[in-house]
Design a protein around this nucleic acid. Structure first.
Length: 582
DNA sequence: TGTGCCTGCCC
DNA sequence: ATTCTGC
DNA sequence: GCAGAATGGGCAGGCACA
């Protein structure tokens, strides 16, 4: 009988992977790992290498985040929770923390007698157990089980158990590198990656792909086909800098569609049985009984997969994203079906009695329109076919005026297949905030900083930013800011901000959020956002609209404003005006 | 029983 | 979601 | 240009704890 892979063997490969940044080398290392892996454990190794415990569409989740894991490390190490948190802030990696301080328990362990070496299967099983604990006392069980695994592992093992339980191995290995590896290990050539990738994209399960390949080689891929009822990885869109680039990318064969601000849905219908999957392939059927019913009324065909965007709708108008999000619930479903009705704007058809993935977009779209009959809830997305950029621009403006995000531009060429799981130029998104001239940037005062994690450890990972309330002469938070920084900028930040460090929250700062480091309100940055939303945590304009402030959706750093004083920051009043313009 | 922290998942 | 970076 | 790893706002749900 085949042996079992020990967890320390697995982590010895992880150590090697951390030594390189070349994906070719990573693939070679991983190939060696899979050569050591018994076929029966290939699926588990696939999941663990990605920091998962099962296929993404499976329901089981660990329910372990930084705080829980920090607690577990504390239990496993006899260090206090505060000490663990402090080390976390310093290192930016709980895995390293666990590795560092799980030493003392080891001698204890051997004192009580040699335990059998931890296997990959045991770690996986332990994590699965953790995912299944629920109800009163479950936190404790989760913590104890995780602490137990950490204790049983060696130091390096502790590091990786912690990282896996957080879902962030940070080895530079993602699904695509793993697929390269599987192709090379089991079909002998990385060139076969496209076929392997296809199997993954239509099955949404790397473990399944790995196992099929391990047992049956290249031929195993034939077992994997589209199944109505199992989610397909969703096709994504590239983004543009300028609208004119569309012509370079798609020439004259394209169509433009409204990009609705809602929730993506992939709807599978098999006879009367309807399943709805989210962008991340979660089964969200139970949240939308209204959509299920409407789809059954709308589509007669037996086996169908369609895709669309659900948007909240009331009194003849599409509602914003935040409104729709209240439908993301487990209880009071029927009440909310009535309170927050939705429409689903279908834009693609992936299956009709047979797979349509390889058909060009115009054909799929035509089939979609022929197949569905629109009703109160089920609609086709708004689409125009033109070669005139001016028409596209007009369409874009209309979409934005109606409160939507912008437009999608889709290739209509012969090769415009549905590229499951891929972000390519067959679909292009064009949103209103991509051009700074179209949505105002804002100058904000930095009032706090958050310790960076992973590659940002030892630096600030994000800044707490505030607008200026002129009347009260205080600074009210509007967002945290953690993207848009180059490595260079990130390196500069601690030094630039040092003069403004403050032990406590400065008197002139109003914030519900507690950063790792407070700053006196002096330093100004330029920030771009998509739009302004009502916020339960940010304080900008908090008395003007009841007890809620305003926040920026999708904030990103544009640059420093050394020329500005904090009092020259965008004012809360200006923010309110911008908010009301929406 | 109510509140607040934490997590996962939408974007 | 957006953004940056090494390959 | 791909693939990966940093990071955002904000919603509901689950649990602990007062």
């Amino acid at each position: 009988m085949s042996r079992s892979l020990s967890f320390s063997e697995l982590t010895s490969y992880f150590l090697q992977l951390e030594e390189t940044r070349s994906r070719n080398e990573m693939t070679d290392i991983l190939v060696d790992l899979f050569k050591e892996t018994p076929n029966s454990e290939v699926d588990i190794v696939c999941y663990l290498v990605l920091g998962q415990i099962n296929a993404e569409y499976e329901e089981e989740v660990l329910g372990l985040g930084n705080k829980m894991v920090a607690k577990a490390i504390s239990i496993a190490s006899s260090k206090s929770k505060q000490e663990v948190q402090e080390l976390f802030r310093e290192t930016g990696d709980l895995g390293t923390v666990a590795e560092k301080i799980s030493g003392e328990t080891k001698t204890l362990n051997s004192f009580f007698g040699e335990q059998k070496e931890l296997t990959v299967t045991e770690v996986h099983q332990g994590l699965k157990d953790i995912s299944r604990f629920e109800g009163s006392g479950s936190y404790d069980k989760k913590l104890r089980t995780l602490a137990g695994l950490i204790t049983r592992a060696d130091k390096v093992g502790a590091r990786y158990i912690v990282r896996i339980s957080l879902g962030k191995l940070r080895l530079g290995i993602g699904a695509m590198t793993l697929l390269d590896t599987l192709a090379k290990t089991y079909t002998g050539d990385k060139k076969n990656r496209p076929e392997v990738e296809r199997a993954y994209n239509i099955s949404s399960d790397v473990g399944l792909v790995g196992k099929k390949l391990a047992y049956k080689g290249h031929k195993g891929l034939e077992d994997i086909e589209v199944e109505v009822g199992r989610p397909i990885r969703m096709m994504l869109a590239q983004r543009l800098e300028n609208l004119d680039e569309v012509k370079d990318k798609l020439e004259d064969r394209f169509a433009a569609e409204v990009k609705y601000d809602g929730e993506r849905m992939q709807i599978h219908k098999k006879n009367d049985e309807v399943k709805i999957y989210s962008r991340r392939m979660e089964d969200i059927t139970h949240q939308y009984p209204d959509v299920v019913k409407a789809i059954n009324q709308s589509i007669g065909s037996k086996e169908v997969i369609v895709e669309g965007e659900a948007v909240a709708y009331k009194d003849g108008e599409l509602q914003d994203f935040q409104t729709l999000m209240q439908r993301k619930r487990k209880y009071d479903i029927q009440k909310y079906v009535e309170k927050i009705p939705v429409k689903i704007f279908l834009f693609d058809m992936l299956y009709k009695e047979d797979s349509l993935l390889d058909k060009p977009f115009p054909e799929r779209r035509k089939k979609l329109e022929q197949t569905i009959s629109e009703n109160e809830i089920v609609k086709c997305s708004d689409i125009i076919k033109t070669t005139e950029l001016r028409e596209v621009e007009k369409f874009f403006n209309k979409s934005v005026d109606e409160g939507q995000e912008g437009i999608m531009i889709k290739s209509c060429s012969k090769d415009s297949i549905y590229r499951a799981g891929a972000r390519e130029w067959l679909w292009i998104k064009w949103k209103k905030d991509y051009e700074t001239r179209m949505s105002d940037t804002v100058d904000l005062t930095v009032v706090g900083g958050f310790a960076g994690r992973g590659r940002r450890s030892g630096l600030y990972g994000a800044l707490l930013c505030a607008a200026y309330n002129k009347q009260k002469d205080i600074f009210e938070t509007v967002c945290k800011l953690g993207t848009g920084f180059s490595d260079e900028t990130l390196e500069e930040l601690p030094e630039k901000l040092k003069p403004f460090e403050s032990e406590k929250k400065p008197a002139r700062v109003s914030s519900k959020i507690e950063p790792d480091q407070w700053f006196k309100p002096e330093f100004v940055v330029e920030v771009l956002g998509a739009e302004l939303t009502k916020s339960p945590v940010h304080t900008a304009g908090i008395d003007t609209i009841g007890n809620e402030g305003i926040a920026i959706r999708f904030p990103r750093f544009i640059g420093f404003r050394a020329d500005k004083k904090s009092e020259d920051s965008t004012t809360t009043k200006e923010i309110m005006v911008m908010y009301e313009k929406n």
